[in-house]
């Protein structure tokens, strides 16, 4: 396959940045999208040019590190996959592909396509955990009976990998899907109920402080989420938040 790439290049956070055109040849349909970028970078390095910076780690769709806004969609045109799981067979020979970083005020560009998503870490640190007594008397989690239905929904919420596709795709740059998944995974379990009030208030406060936008329920986040996190979680977080605020 021969492709025309339009890639966002930005030297650092202060640089204005611009789209730069690259032509790439001999792309195999079996390559992943990131492997295609690896080939491009090999070529750029051989030409003594600066390779394109992009985030990646496990390349198995579980770490949440890869990002990229490809042809106007977070993680590209495929559904239920991260960019590292997107394959070039989804594109046609001669295609022009736009590759941009995830855009949000709360996700500043570090370089080229790599963005700083530590706002998510700070939201997690504000309440996305359960305080555990580690003195040696910790109760075995399996000793607490949990209805299967609740356990399944908590697990579904916990599959969020925090990649930020929800923020990137939301027209408002809202982080509600991510935060609601993190709130829900604990709110549905008895272990999480103990700190539920403080958790939701603190995580939402931190989310607002980071400068994310407001959710307008377009549902785009649910569609683009590589893990299929449901909008039900946002409704649950809204309920949790309202109940906690009135306490």
């Amino acid at each position: 396959m021969k492709l025309n790439l339009k890639i966002w290049r930005q030297k650092n956070a202060q640089d204005q940045g611009k789209m730069v055109d690259y032509a790439i040849d001999n792309v195999s349909p079996d390559m992943s999208f990131l492997e295609m970028l690896d080939v491009l970078n090999d070529d750029l390095i051989q030409k003594d040019q600066d390779p394109v910076a992009f985030d990646h780690d496990c390349r198995e769709g579980i770490c949440g590190m890869c990002s990229l806004y490809i042809n106007g969609e977070a993680h590209g045109p495929d559904r239920g996959v991260t960019t590292c799981q997107l394959h070039m067979r989804k594109f046609k020979d001669g295609d022009t592909i736009f590759i941009e970083p995830f855009r949000a005020k709360a996700f500043p560009v570090i370089k080229d396509l790599a963005v700083n998503r530590s706002a998510f870490d700070r939201i997690q640190q504000a309440g996305g955990f359960i305080s555990v007594n580690t003195s040696g008397n910790t109760l075995d989690a399996n000793a607490i009976p949990i209805p299967k239905h609740d356990a399944d929904r908590a697990f579904d919420a916990a599959t969020c990998i925090g990649c930020g596709a929800c923020v990137a795709t939301c027209k408002n740059s809202s982080a509600m899907l991510f935060v609601s998944a993190k709130v829900s995974q604990f709110a549905l379990l008895p272990q999480g109920r103990v700190e539920a009030t403080d958790r939701v208030l603190n995580m939402v406060r931190q989310m607002d402080e980071e400068g994310f936008g407001n959710c307008t329920n377009t549902g785009a986040c649910e569609v683009e989420c590589p893990k299929g996190i449901s909008l039900e979680n946002i409704a649950r977080m809204n309920r949790e938040y309202l109940a906690a605020s009135l306490k």
């Binding site: 339009k6 806004y69 042809n71 736009f98 941009e100 795709t169 377009t218 785009a220």
Partner: peptide
């Protein structure tokens, strides 16, 4: 630069 909003909302 390119946003395909109609794809998901």
């Amino acid at each position: 630069v390119k946003n395909n909003g109609a794809a998901n909302a």
